[in-house]
Design a binder for these strands. Sequence first.
DNA 1: CAGCCCACTGTACGCACGTATAGCCAACTG
DNA 2: CAGTTGGCTATACGTGCGTACAGTGGGCTG
Lengths: 231, 231
Amino acid sequence: MISFGGRPAAKDLTARARIRDAALKHFAESGFSGATIREIAKTAGVSPGLVRHHFGSKEGLRRVCDTYVLEALHQFNDRVLQEEAPGDSPLTADDKRALDPFQRYLVSTLIEESEVAAPLFDEMVKMIDRWLVKADESRADPPMVDRTTRAALMVAQTMGIAAFHKHVSRVIGMDVLSDEGDQKVALAMLDIYSHNLISPEYAASAREGMAQTAPASETSNDDTMERHSDD
Amino acid sequence: MISFGGRPAAKDLTARARIRDAALKHFAESGFSGATIREIAKTAGVSPGLVRHHFGSKEGLRRVCDTYVLEALHQFNDRVLQEEAPGDSPLTADDKRALDPFQRYLVSTLIEESEVAAPLFDEMVKMIDRWLVKADESRADPPMVDRTTRAALMVAQTMGIAAFHKHVSRVIGMDVLSDEGDQKVALAMLDIYSHNLISPEYAASAREGMAQTAPASETSNDDTMERHSDD
DNA sequence: CAGCCCACTGTACGCACGTATAGCCAACTG
DNA sequence: CAGTTGGCTATACGTGCGTACAGTGGGCTG
């Protein structure tokens, strides 16, 4: 069982564990390519050579960190699903708090494509999908698109808040990772998800409008980034 | 005026413009640190030395690209605000399509902190905020949090879809950048934003519950990433 | 035509990185 | 006590990067 809260003092950890923890920290803050073995070793209080000794290569170290986080998320997922409908919200405040340490690592992992990025994302989709099942029960009209698509988009949206938390913090004037900011974010999410930002009537008409204008894909998707004016 | 659609043939561009376009492309795909001057020069069909000749340094090249995109977004924003309530949706399909080439660049710029990252984000917040004004008019109860906070979170969410579009595409089984996938995403967003994923009753009770458990910030936000179990 | 400017190239320097390897030292084993 | 194992360090190698700089050729100006 991977513990989220308790932990032995840093000095009591195995050098291997200290390296892994340092790597989790650096990968989360700087990404995989941005982090360096030398800095990770310095944080762990060991020599760079020892990193290679224990993990073979930087890629090997990444693999260990990835599976560690994947396992943690998987256990967390199981625990949430086991509780079986604790309320109406997808996550309690405590649950969100427990995931905080891993959020930035998840973001970095998902953006730079590693092997476990897909399983990690799918695991989160599974979580939201499960929650959408219940949410769909209390709606009158059938959903416009399948549940999985909506779940995937909501996961991407949620991770977006974590990815750009620095900008969000700056705009709202408080750190979203602090208790105060987290509460404000939670309130905002409650508000957003409990109110229709688009009226159902307009959504219906917009759907029909879309069905007319674009019944099928027509244009080729060439490299759109090379379109700019000259000087 | 920066053109979004029309562009001269690649060979007719100034070498300087070709370098800038190549940089926009590489920065968008690989990020600033991931992109290399050598590869950018190769794409532009020039020598690496010419890049330095025209832009001074890699940082100077970034600065030019940043202001270019910032200007484009600013013009786009002005144009949208000028149209004054074209409908109920924040962006039309054509508008979204016009922003597509810059989305990945925006994501990369926002994640790696550059000087214009904050202005870019703020510009987008301004867009959503403006749209929220109208959305707030047609709701009965007062919002739980200020409009700016909700706007910032919605921007982060929206950018999250762009940031993780690869994973979303994999899960939903079609490229979200294609016409087909884009339409599906648009439909899903219409559905999500036109339905209450959380009942207002639960949201209200959850708000009161939160007010009790955490009336003020109490714990310090120490480094939460160093909490793990030993081996 | 002489002189100059400037876009542009080729080569080289210094640096930081991941990686490789030889060796040290404490702990365990017979 | 001799021998071996394994955690650990120090040093060095190769590579790719941003950067620097000398040089070149075409077009403009006087």
